[in-house]
């Protein structure tokens, strides 16, 4: 599908367009959601909510303002972070002390993809990694990070920029690209 066809399909609420987007971006968005909520079943429900929202809000997508992925990841991320702020989620997080990602063992056995973010982020210095994790996966604002980490707002911004630049280098390495290619084939 071309960009025009996608935009046209989205604004018409066309099922085939949604199916195409799911096939191409579903796993990437699921990875983001899973990393935010750390619960397989909840993540599945939230991925469903995300695609229903994408379908509903399709006509509001403006290709001039943002890329398709930028728009969709924002919906997925907001949906997941909102879920973590719900009372039920907080209650469950308190009773469940384990902080590990909930993956099904059979999936973990052969799935190079989910290692990606961890590995890439894991290669970052802690002071950078924590910024990306807290901002992107936990929904902290700059001001909240300033208070939480006890560093000035200006530093929060510059470290974010540095973190993303290091990430860019890491992501352009062949290994990650290989995984990406492998994934798109799968």
């Amino acid at each position: 599908m071309t960009q025009d066809q996608l935009i046209q399909g989205l604004s018409n609420g066309d099922n085939k367009t949604i199916a195409w987007l799911y096939d191409h971006y579903g796993a990437a968005l699921f990875g983001i959601i899973l990393r935010i909520v750390k619960d397989q079943e909840l993540a599945e429900n939230l991925l469903q909510d995300t695609f229903v929202k994408i379908w509903k809000a399709g006509s509001t997508f403006d290709g001039q303002k943002a890329s398709l992925f930028a728009w969709m990841q924002r919906i997925a991320r907001n949906t997941a972070i909102d879920a973590t702020r719900s009372a039920i989620f907080k209650q469950r997080a308190e009773t469940d002390q384990s902080d590990v990602l909930v993956y099904k063992p059979e999936e973990a056995a052969f799935n190079p993809d989910h290692i990606g973010v961890r590995d890439v982020l894991g290669q970052l210095d802690d002071k950078y990694r924590i910024l990306i994790e807290k901002a992107y996966f936990e929904g902290y604002t700059q001001q909240e990070l300033e208070q939480e980490l006890g560093i000035p707002l200006g530093t929060v911004k510059t470290r974010m920029r540095q973190a993303m630049q290091i990430l860019r280098q890491l992501l352009s390495e062949t290994a990650v690209l290989g995984w990406w290619i492998l994934f798109t084939y799968l």
Binding site: N15, I18, A19, Y22, D23, G26, A27, A28, L29, F30, G31, I32, L34, R35, E44, L47, Q48, F51, V52, A66, S67, F69, A70, Q73, Y103, E107, N111, D113, H114, G116, V117, R118, D119, V120, Y136, M164, L167, R168, L171, S172, V176, W179, W180, F183, T184, L186
Partner: peptide
């Protein structure tokens, strides 16, 4: 955003196959 997209694809997790039908 392109970097974030790459990061997301690097961390992509295939959802269970049945989920697509459920969502559609």
């Amino acid at each position: 955003f392109a970097d974030l997209e790459k990061m997301a694809f690097a961390g992509a997790v295939p959802p269970p196959p049945a989920l697509k039908d459920r969502i559609m």
